[in-house]
Design a protein around this nucleic acid. Structure first.
Lengths: 239, 239
DNA sequence: CGCCGGTTTGATGTTTGTCAACGCGAGTGG
DNA sequence: CCACTCGCGTTGACAAACATCAAACCGGCG
């Protein structure tokens, strides 16, 4: 088999329960396979798309790990999310036909390219697919609202606890451990996402470790007391 | 003409340049008129939908002013946005068939009800409408990212300056003054949205007034030096 | 008139940012 | 192979920003 013609088939993808194909019929999935003609490799540190780039496609993460970043004219910049296998990148580009944030691979990654005009055409044919696209966009909106809540109403400890629980939960949904993880991002990137400085991230990790809630060594984190983390998140206003 | 049969027509709506109908053909707009069968009045303080309510429709604000709020189990709550005429509410409900936030009218309001299943059906027929729906959802995602940037990387002064500029710009797009506005929300609601306490909001208003940038008297605000506000927003990291 | 929600302002405390030093480990070139 | 650098992480001392608590005020309304 020619290396350049590896068939990229949603129907045989091990992410199909997490990604676009959820709930599609075999017929629909076959059509989807046609749509997704290409994959793209993205090396660690490279950008999948940058703010300002023309919008043409959505991307489904097949492997690897991404961050999305917005940067403003005045040099401010902020990580707006971390994406792992099965998650969709590029939704920000639709409204203005260009991307408003950049997506950077935090480790060598591979994405499925979903040309958006074709996706729109296909979802005019299949209402299941159409609805699923709507659900994906709505999910992103709800996720963003969760981040707003985090940024607007939580203290550093609570933010980091919520972040760790969210990460490990998503990793667990992909078959990884629910207590161990290796962070793919730096303290600075975590801080940027959580609206705090890298020193505060580091100190908070250390405090959690001192309290016996987690074990940290650089990027490696082991969650010893998940319910203690959850309690920290919930300590906002005990009724 | 019977009072109960006031025709709700996008085609004759003075918001059509801001709302759903942007760029639709007359045929498409006629179909859209059929879809939007009902309007709904919402009294000041009443909820259009609450978190947990079954999702059936999107809502286009015709008049009045809303806030959207999320509240968590542990008693935390946060304003995630303020919506005015021509803006769309309810996108959060699609992903789980129930709303994840509540929409509360801050003054007597009226909305057009857009049954979502019908909107999906119609957008399978008209690709213009379909794309417009996608654009509306993408716009919301981009807006949310802007709020994340604000919450994650700005100080109180910068947040409030950005908030005022954003409000007055949206009001101006609706034909209101670009220098005067009447706030429809309390200091506490502003604070909740901006991730700060009501006292800090109040103090920051006072400071802006002392500096001659704005004039404030309770809910009334007059922007005297818009470029000074803009400079405050941009003072993040002057290159 | 007196109440009440919303707002302003002051005094004080806590959290987080800032600045700076140091450690650790991976890669690189002498 | 070792010394060096470089990026990343940790930790400490101090400062700034913001929250908290408390009092007073203002304007509308019964």
């Amino acid at each position: 088999m020619d290396l350049h013609s590896i068939k990229v088939a949603c129907s045989s993808c091990n992410l199909r329960e997490l990604c676009i194909p959820v709930g599609l019929s075999t017929d629909e999935m076959a059509q989807l396979d046609d749509l997704i003609s290409t994959r793209r490799r993205v090396r660690r540190g490279a950008t999948l798309f940058a703010a300002g780039d023309a919008f043409t496609s959505l991307y489904a993460v097949r492997s690897g790990f991404f961050k999305t970043v917005i940067n403003t004219a005045d040099g401010r910049d902020q990580v707006t999310g971390f994406q792992m296998a099965g998650e969709i990148l590029g939704l920000d580009g639709i409204v203005q036909d260009k991307h408003s944030c950049s997506a950077v691979a935090l480790e060598d990654a591979e994405v499925c390219v979903l040309p958006f005009d074709k996706l729109e055409a296909l979802s005019r044919e299949f209402s299941t697919l159409q609805h699923h696209v709507h659900r994906i966009m709505s999910r992103e909106i709800v996720r963003d609202q969760g981040v707003m809540l985090l940024l607007g109403s939580m203290r550093a400890e609570e933010r980091l606890a919520a972040f760790l629980l969210n990460l490990v939960q998503r990793l667990h949904a992909r078959g990884f451990s629910r207590s161990e993880l290796v962070l793919r991002m730096t303290r600075e990137e975590i801080g940027s996402y959580l609206g705090m400085k890298l020193e505060t991230v580091s100190r908070t990790f250390s405090r959690f470790q001192d309290e016996g809630i987690i074990e940290v060594r650089q990027r490696y984190v082991r969650i010893l007391e998940p319910q203690a983390l959850q309690a920290i998140v919930n300590q906002g206003e005990p009724l």
